[in-house]
Design a protein around this nucleic acid. Structure first.
Length: 832
RNA sequence: GCGAGAGUGGCGGAAUUGGUAGACGCGCUGGACUUAGGAUCCAGUCCUGAAAGGGGUGGGGGUUCGAGUCCCCCCUUUCGCACCA
């Protein structure tokens, strides 16, 4: 299959790839300088990997995209930082340890070895001297340092609260790790539990995390939208309702103050704290308790099912609407979320679909206070669903007639002036729960002292080393809790006996700052050098999968903002540009998985067809942001291109060692030469733009066209001929680096092609001396005419008028006007 | 339900952002060279039509000299969130 016919040399990719990988390594070609010039650097980051031991098509695609960009930036003369590392803490290592009776670190380190050497075979231009491994103490020392900084600034705190509990993994999960009520990792239904744990106050950053998205034009809209929705900022009014016959107030949050005269009941979440403070008669208290039990037994999914019939129980108590003094029933209902707002809502059945369903079920009155518009009243008896749009207020006292924003404004201001309400901003985003009751993670650097409370481990005592343990079997509490040598310590403040926190940190903490450690990975006295941060940051391009849109990609922005606030860095946003590559599916559009047996290994392909051909095939099959349905057909076209055109092209090289910066004068070239010279420059332009937009499929297509049109036999000028050969090789180099290096060397260059200058196009040669003008009559194409470049409108019109095809549509008709687009098109508009 | 995308040949996909739709590649058809071809080369390949021409970018309207591209209404589809009051 790989036997070329036109080439008299076999394309011995195995030899070529090994040779160049070795040479790159020896020459330290990819080692980034410690402190680049800020205006001439490029930080190319790909999401680091969990070391599972194999590199699959998804990794392959991710890293070759980053590689193509990094290598091209090298050719553009930038100081390039292109590092890699391993997100090495996490559950699979514990699993494997339990199954095979080896230590998680051993399993992890072995996998890293295997994966690293695979990546080296892919020829990715990583600077391995900056590799980070998050489970090694020299890294997690600084993860703990980050925790301590957060703690010292009040951004890390411990509280008891309802948490997501995965019964399979036996650990707490952050909200971001729960998808559709299930553990993102193992798919088990998540349970609610009331438990003590550590949190990061990411909610303090909610406004900035939302607002600053607008300063990121280089981020895809869909990711920004997803983050905004996840953070879920909403503006509204908090109103106090007195609970009749008690001194208690019930505060509620609403985004629709304009419906407040339509409140006909109130609803409290069964988990809301206020419920405990309500004096209930024994009869009602028992009913409420029973309902609470029932609600607690329902999974999140059951409770969230939108179609689920709302249910609840009456508390026997009444609340008073401060706007009109009306007395309404106070219910407990589990469609109200405990964790949002105040855990209680004012219910306006006429204008909220959930309240509507509830009111219908329990026969609670429905009161219309908004009309669709002034002339279209709503009839309560005919309503089959709530009317939730905006419209003029009715039955609302002095507010009648106000509508929309101004209505909300008027009601809010009134409440504020009377002192029973205040404007408020609420977020869906919750504080980030980071305690994990598992072994294989970074220990939380906190000491609990019965006298002094929670004390951060002094920075000079970091890292808190993860001890060896006998048993990683998950029991629902951290394995470290059973290691007295670890647990027992002394209080750093009073010196008395104290205990370490037994929990470890969510691995997303480790990955929230790894991009900074790359700047200065060996630093033993600081997480990274501030000057290196100034020079290298922000990340110029961050490439990874879309799956991290509302997890990692929010967390690392949060860390960045925190570190800026405490003076470690001087920028607000970590990454200027974000690119999400598409997934790699099998030929039928199914996700590749071991259980389906449809996994295609990039390694096998690289071995049978060559790494560069495999890389080109991945680039060429689909644009990088779209999903790829991978089949072996993907290889056919690019393989022919490499074997029949690209690899043999070097035979056409005449050894002229041309000045690659020289531009030719079109007048000095003959017709064949001129046309290929124009093609060359058009190609350089197209390819450069394609790389800039990461349209690597289009970049390959353009080079294919050039090499197809290139016919050395028809070119007299050796310098021109050789420019075409060499620039074609340069243009393909970032995508097929081994092949390009080999050809470049064959042409006589001693230095790596990645030290050569990326070709620039001759602006005077992107259009030829004769150009084609489309001639339309009434917008329909009738002919294409050749005119000298630079012709004015009059001469183009004259040439068009001479065309018989055009004449056929114009003769005898009145010409109304002519639209001329210079160098492209002439449209003759005729009557009739 | 809410939100954000996407619909272009048999297939993957191009189209300088309002200016010659279908680049490049796969597949397919025919031919050349061959003992052979699953190699290579040449030609063809949106539909219709003998041709001239006509039609054509999910469907329907609109703006414009000109719309795949902009606007409105549908349809299909992918992804995300999912009782957030």
């Amino acid at each position: 299959m790989s036997t070329p016919t036109r080439s008299d040399r076999k394309y011995d990719f195995k030899h070529i790839e090994a040779k160049w990988q070795e040479r790159w390594e020896k020459e330290r070609l990819f080692h980034a300088p410690p402190l680049p010039q800020h205006d001439n650097k490029f930080y190319m980051l790909v999401m680091f990997a969990y070391p599972s031991g194999d590199i699959h098509m998804g990794h392959f695609r991710n890293y070759i995209i980053g590689d193509a960009v990094a290598r091209r930036q090298m050719m553009l003369g930038k100081a390039v930082l292109h590092p890699f590392g391993w997100d090495a803490f996490g559950l699979p290592a514990e699993r494997a340890a339990i199954q095979r009776n080896i230590h998680p670190s051993e399993w992890t380190d072995n996998n890293i070895e295997v994966s690293r050497s695979t990546l080296q075979k892919v020829g990715i231009s990583f600077d391995w001297s900056r590799e980070v491994i998050t489970c090694h103490p020299d890294y997690y020392k600084w993860t703990q340092w980050m925790f301590v900084q957060l703690f010292k600034h009040g951004k890390a705190f411990r509280k008891r609260g309802v948490i997501n509990w995965c019964p399979e993994d036996k650990t707490v999960l952050a909200n971001e790790q729960v998808k559709e009520g299930r553990c993102e990792r193992c798919g088990t239904l998540v349970e609610k539990k009331d438990q003590m744990g550590w949190y990061f106050r990411i909610t303090d950053y909610a406004d900035r995390l939302t607002d600053d998205l607008d300063s990121l034009p280089g981020w895809p809209e869909n990711v920004k939208t997803m983050q905004k929705e996840w953070i879920g900022r909403s503006y509204g009014l908090e109103v106090d309702f007195q609970i009749e016959g008690t001194g208690e107030k019930l505060a509620i949050f609403t985004t629709r103050p304009d419906t407040i005269f339509g409140v006909t009941f109130m609803a409290i979440s069964p988990e809301a704290e206020i419920l405990g403070k309500l004096p209930l008669t024994p009869e009602f208290a028992a009913k409420v308790r029973e309902y609470q039990k029932q609600a607690a037994g329902r999974s999140d999914i059951e409770r969230a099912a939108a179609t689920l019939e709302k249910d609840g129980v009456f508390t026997g108590r009444y609340a008073v609407n401060p706007f009109n003094g009306e007395r309404v029933q106070l219910w407990v209902a589990d469609y109200v979320l405990a964790g949002y707002g105040t855990g209680a809502v004012m219910a306006v059945p006429a204008h909220d679909s959930r309240d509507f369903a509830f009111a219908k079920r329990y026969g609670i009155p429905i009161k219309v206070v908004i009309h669709p518009d002034a002339n279209t009243p709503l009839d309560v008896n005919k309503m089959t669903e709530a009317f939730t749009d905006h419209g003029p207020m009715v039955n609302s006292g002095q507010f009648d007639g106000k509508a929309g924003e101004s209505a909300i404004d008027a009601v809010s201001s009134f409440a504020e002036s009377k002192g029973f309400g205040r404007r408020k901003v609420n977020f869906k985003l919750k504080d980030w729960s980071i305690s994990r009751q598992r072994y294989w993670g970074a220990p939380i650097p906190i000491i609990h002292c019965s006298n002094c409370g929670e004390q951060a481990v002094p920075e000079d005592q970091l890292p808190v080393l993860l001890p060896k343990v006998e048993n990683y079997m998950p029991k629902g509490r951290s394995p470290l809790a059973d290691v007295p040598e670890f647990l027992n310590t002394i209080c750093p403040k009073c010196g008395g006996p104290a205990e370490r926190d037994p929990d470890t940190m969510d691995t997303f903490v480790c990955s929230s700052w790894y991009f900074l450690r790359y700047l200065d990975a060996q630093n033993e006295s600081a997480p990274f050098d501030k000057e290196a941060g100034k020079r290298w940051m922000p990340i110029d391009l961050y490439v990874g999968g879309i799956t991290h849109a509302t997890g990692h990609l929010i967390y690392f922005r949060f860390f960045t903002k925190f570190l800026k606030d405490i003076g470690w860095i001087d920028f607000d946003e970590p990454a200027k540009k974000l690119f999400n590559h598409g997934m790699v599916m099998d030929a039928h559009g199914e996700v590749m998985s071991k259980s389906k047996g449809n996994v295609v290994s990039p390694i096998a392909l690289m071995e049978s067809r060559g790494t560069d051909i495999t890389r080109l095939a991945m680039f060429f099959t689909a644009p990088s942001e779209k999903e790829v349905l991978w089949s072996s057909d993907s290889l056919t076209g690019v393989e022919k291109f490499v074997l029949n055109r690209m690899y043999p092209i070097i035979k056409e090289y005449r050894g002229s060692r041309p000045d690659l910066k020289r531009y030719f004068k079109q007048a000095e070239l003959d017709e064949n030469e001129r046309s290929i010279y124009v093609k060359l420059n058009q190609t350089i332009k197209r390819v450069s733009e394609a790389y800039d937009r990461l349209q690597l499929n289009a970049a390959i297509a353009a080079v294919m066209e050039l090499t197809r049109d290139f016919d050395s036999a028809r070119i007299k000028d050796a310098g021109l001929n050789d420019q075409i050969v060499l620039k074609s090789i340069q243009m393909i180099a970032p995508m097929a680096p081994h092949l390009a290096e080999e050809l470049w060397e064959t042409a006589g260059f001693k230095e790596s092609i990645f030290k050569s200058d990326w070709p620039e196009f001759d602006p005077s040669a992107v259009i030829g001396d004769m150009i084609e003008i489309a001639v339309q009559v009434n917008g329909k194409l009738r002919d294409s005419i050749q005119v000298p470049a630079g012709s004015d409108q009059a001469s183009v019109e004259a040439a068009a008028a001479a065309s018989p095809k055009v004449q056929a549509f114009v003769t005898g008709k009145e010409i109304l006007k002519r639209v001329y687009v210079a160098g492209r098109l002439l449209n003759i508009v005729v009557k009739g």
